[in-house]
Design a binder for these strands. Structure first.
Length: 875
RNA sequence: GCCGGUGUGGCGGAACUGGUAGACGCGCACGACUCAAAAUCGUGUUCCGCAAGGAGUGUGGGUUCGAUUCCCUCCACCGGCACCA
């Protein structure tokens, strides 16, 4: 009897409705079962979900459904990272209010996510742009302020001189403003900062505790925090040559061992001494202005040509009063690190070398690599930063770098100038405080008021939230809050006199630094968190998101959680116990002869391999097949999840997304791959019906023994169960899926071999195997699983079923086949009993024809028997 | 520039803790069913070779009875760089 094809389009909404009606994904806060919190990074509501979202949420849903089946009380919420620049851009381009635009996008994307069949507790949905969310964020800002974790200080921004506005790094293209085309300048502005650097040491050492984080993320964070032990050294300056008689310059160095290789000193263009000198020196002022005519991005600073300006000042070498070093202002020295001044040792630092070569300052190597002769060792255009012994360094010659550092530190610590030591040891961190001020509208207002008499006054708790005004215009560039006619004019909460509301809003990273805590009780209005709930649910057991967030978002969240603990809003410091960073979804690119990018949906592919070519469906025009790249609007290589779900169903999309690549690597979206997944859906549907047929009339009680075909099927089912369980636990979804394929193949073959009516033990085994199969793929393809579960005669929902119970004795084989190698090359195999003795195995191996031939009558040099694994004969 | 990652058949990938390289899927080829097509089912599919056999996990080297796995060198590609989210 032929069965109908499985109709995903009809079945999927039907099951989604049933799940929702029964509320089976609503997570109770009060529940005796152990908790499990699985969270995917919440999306920015850009308008439509993209394939990257499908991948991210499919993975999270597999974990959620699996853990639920394993008997845990699973929290799996969803929300919206709803503040940000794109909404303001839309407002400028399309004259739509950021709020309206964002809310439309949220509605559209919520519907899309629901069509994926995710097991989410939608009652907990939050959007960061709602006053009900950001009022708590403002409250925490004020608490952080009182706790001394917030500071106001000068910081650099990209300034567009034509549009008179601050630009994001993203808005600076080749050093120019994206709208005006004006050359961007650096400007100093008063900004709000979170004191993340207070936690540098703790954020660093705590990384060791995050055992379920990818090692690469921990390394990246470790480098980002950048702890280094070094020396603060005060160099004497000739006061006659300095602008205001300054007589010293302090630098931070981690390479004080190379002091005798020093050739120059360099100041950041923002260094006070540089500023002072520029006041009397128009040429220097022009140079500093030139340095500031670049964006603030680190990459821009690093890759710009090294340039400097000789100030005429002279610094004295700490070990030789007659040794004078020229002082430059240099574009590669940043004020944000150390003291904003360095001594340059060209031989052992690439940047210093490039600088010295340009200005002919000389190069003297002071560390000699072990494999080089000190007499002939020279540095030309490649600095040496490896290990070695000191040379050209007077009393340090011959010692190691470490010994030299120690000796220099001791000498300079004990030497004094004025009443203070010339140097002191210091631990420095690269991590800078987190600037959260944004001069933009669509963000969380910073809840303070500036009063001429009282200074910075926090907005009283009872006045929160400070809501964004609705009536704003985006006709002109700049911050609409700043030019709003009334919003910023308020009276001082302290003295009542006219005052000015802060018009900066917060970085959207603040919004995403605590949303995971809010999910644990999104209903509480009186506080950001309910302490009992947040402490119960956190840390997140499994957090899943893109590697692009490996540093900033995750580090900020770790800081924020610590700050919340300090201010009583949470009781722990590490928010994410387990982290998984998934890869991107990539696709081929297509380009028409006129250079325009073409969407995959418009292209027809012909041929294969090197013969592969593409044509435009509409005109037949040949299309160039380009490289495989991240799906993006600009390259037009996107595939719309809606289209895929409409034509194949959500299960097929989820299955393919999970099956084709390891989850931490990029997956290439291909039409063929999706079709293959679609075929498997239909195959499962037929297989389950065939299995139901074979299981008909199965005994209610488990048979006492199982004969040949039945035991084989049972072994296959339980082997699959064991493997899939482990693979899902380790988030190796692609391997789990391969195991399910293998089991389905074996099941199908087993059913096909039935020649007569199956005996009762087989009927029972077929029913068991079908039940296991459906529950195994349920986390990936939940709708199909429900449909199959019903077809097998169950009246429950498989989404509420427990995970199958493994019978480990079914995994044990009586005999095993060992590969036999001769000199490391496989030449045959032997089948021996499960517990065969080594000598028995050796005898069997030496009796093999291939082995006898290879040995040619001589005894083997050695026979290595690795129990349960392999035999290697060394001839 | 700095930091991090990745590299295995025609393609995506698998390989436990150093132990049979290529599981599983895609693609392709052939066959069955069909008037035909689609769908489905079956067989084959790393490369060279008729075969015996040999080669083979980005490159070159090393350690080992044995290396995709560990160490060193080089190459290519990708992600992040503090105001994109």
């Amino acid at each position: 009897m032929a069965i109908e094809r499985y109709n995903a389009r009809e079945a999927e909404p039907r099951w989604q409705k049933k799940w929702e009606e029964r509320g089976i994904f609503e997570t109770p806060n009060a529940d005796p079962r152990p908790k499990y919190y699985v969270l995917e990074m919440f999306p920015y509501p850009s308008g439509r979900i993209h394939m990257g979202h499908v991948r991210n949420y499919a993975m999270g849903d597999v974990v959620a459904r699996f853990k639920r089946a394993a008997g845990l009380n699973v929290l799996h919420p969803m929300g919206w990272d709803a503040f940000g620049m794109p909404a303001e851009n839309a407002a400028m381009e399309r004259k739509v209010h950021p709020s309206a635009w964002t809310h439309q996008n949220i509605a559209a994307m919520r519907a899309q996510l629901k069509s994926m069949g995710l097991s989410i507790d939608w009652r907990r949905e939050i959007a960061t742009c709602e006053p009900g969310y950001y009022k708590h964020q403002q409250r925490m800002f004020l608490d952080f302020l009182r706790a001394g974790l917030v500071e106001r200080k000068l910081g650099k921004v990209n300034w567009d001189p034509i549009d008179q506005t601050v630009l994001a790094n993203e808005q600076v293209i080749d050093g120019r403003g994206w709208r005006s085309g004006a050359v961007v300048e650096q400007r100093e502005m008063m900004q709000w900062y979170f004191g993340i650097s207070k936690f540098s040491e703790d954020l660093l050492v705590s990384l060791d505790r995050l055992e379920r984080w990818p090692e690469k993320v921990r390394i990246m964070q470790r480098n980002w925090i950048g702890r280094s032990e070094g020396l603060l050294v005060r160099f004497a300056l000739d006061p006659a040559m300095t602008p205001n008689g300054e007589d010293e310059l302090e630098v931070f160095t981690t390479r004080h061992d190379t002091l005798f290789g020093a050739k120059f000193m360099a100041l950041s263009p923002d260094h006070p001494l540089a500023t002072a000198a520029a006041a009397h020196n128009p040429a220097l002022a022009a140079f500093i202005a030139e340095c500031k005519r670049h964006g603030t991005a680190q990459e821009v600073i690093d890759t710009a040509e090294k340039k400097g300006f000789a100030t005429g000042m002279r610094a004295v070498h700490p070990f030789d009063p007659n040794w004078k070093l020229p002082v430059y202002v240099a574009n590669f020295v940043v004020m944000e690190y150390g003291t904003g001044a360095i001594f340059g040792c060209p031989a052992h630092d690439q940047r210093d070398l490039e600088f010295a070569n340009k200005y002919r300052l000389g190069v003297t190597p002071v560390v000699c690599p072990p494999d080089q002769d000190p007499k002939t060792f020279v540095i030309t255009d490649s600095a040496y930063d490896g290990d070695g012994r000191m040379i050209n360094s007077r009393f340090l010659d011959g010692v190691t770098i470490e010994q030299a550092k120690e000796e220099v530190a001791i000498l300079l610590e004990t030497q004094s100038r004025g009443n203070r030591p010339v140097a002191r040891r210091q631990v420095n961190f690269r991590l800078r405080d987190w600037g959260i001020s944004r001069q933009r509208y669509w963000g969380c207002p910073i809840p303070v008021i500036h009063c001429e008499g009282c200074g910075v006054v926090p907005v009283p708790y009872e006045d929160l939230p400070v809501k964004l005004p609705q009536d704003v215009d985006f006709e002109r560039p700049g911050n609409p809050l700043e030019r709003h006619p009334t919003w910023k004019h308020v009276s001082c909460p302290k003295c009542g006199r006219p005052a000015r509301r802060e018009t900066d809003t917060m970085d959207t990273f603040v919004d995403s630094s605590w949303y995971f805590a809010r999910f644990t009780d999104p209903w509480i209005e009186t506080a950001p968190t309910d302490r009992a709930e947040v402490d119960h649910w956190l840390p997140v057991d499994q957090y899943i998101g893109g590697i692009e967030h490996a540093i900033l978002h995750l580090l900020y969240s770790r800081f924020f959680t610590r700050a919340m603990r300090m201010t009583g809003h949470a009781g722990l410091d590490e928010p994410f116990a387990g982290l998984f960073t998934q890869g991107m979804v990539v696709h081929e690119t297509y380009r028409a002869p006129d250079g325009e990018w073409v969407e995959p949906a418009e292209v027809k592919i012909e041929g294969m391999g090197r013969e592969r070519s593409a044509r435009l469906i509409s005109t037949g025009e040949p299309i160039e097949i380009g490289s495989i790249e991240k799906m993006s609007k600009s390259k037009r290589n996107t595939v719309d999840p809606d289209d895929i779900i409409a034509s194949y169903g959500a299960d097929t999309a989820r299955w393919f997304m999970l099956s084709d690549s390891p989850p931490d690597r990029d997956v290439i979206w291909t039409e063929e791959g999706v079709q293959g997944a679609g075929r498997f859906v239909q195959r499962i549907w037929r297989l389950v019906h065939d299995a139901a047929q074979a299981a008909k009339g199965a005994p209610a009680d488990r048979p006492a023994t199982f004969a040949a075909p039945a035991i084989g099927l049972r072994k296959a089912a339980h082997r699959a169960l064991a493997r899939v369980t482990e693979d899902i636990e380790r988030l190796r979804f692609n391997v789990a899926i391969a195991q399910i394929y293998e089991f389905a193949n074996a099941f199908q073959a087993s059913l096909a071999e039935l020649e007569t009516e199956p005996p009762p033990d087989y009927r029972w085994a077929a029913a068991e195997a079908a039940d296991i199969l459906v529950r195994l793929f349920h986390p990936m393809m939940p709708h199909l699983a429900e449909e199959c579960w019903a077809a097998l005669g169950h009246e429950t929902l498989v989404a509420s079923e427990a995970w199958p119970i493994l019978e480990p004795e079914l995994l044990i084989e009586d005999s095993i086949t060992l590969p036999v190698q001769i000199n490391g090359k496989k030449r045959g195999d032997v089948t021996v009993g499960r517990n065969a003795a080594t000598s028995e195995i050796e005898d069997a191996v030496l009796a093999l024809e291939a082995v006898k031939r290879a040995l040619g009558g001589k005894p083997p040099k050695k026979v290595i028997v690795v129990p349960q694994r392999i035999v290697n004969v060394v001839a």
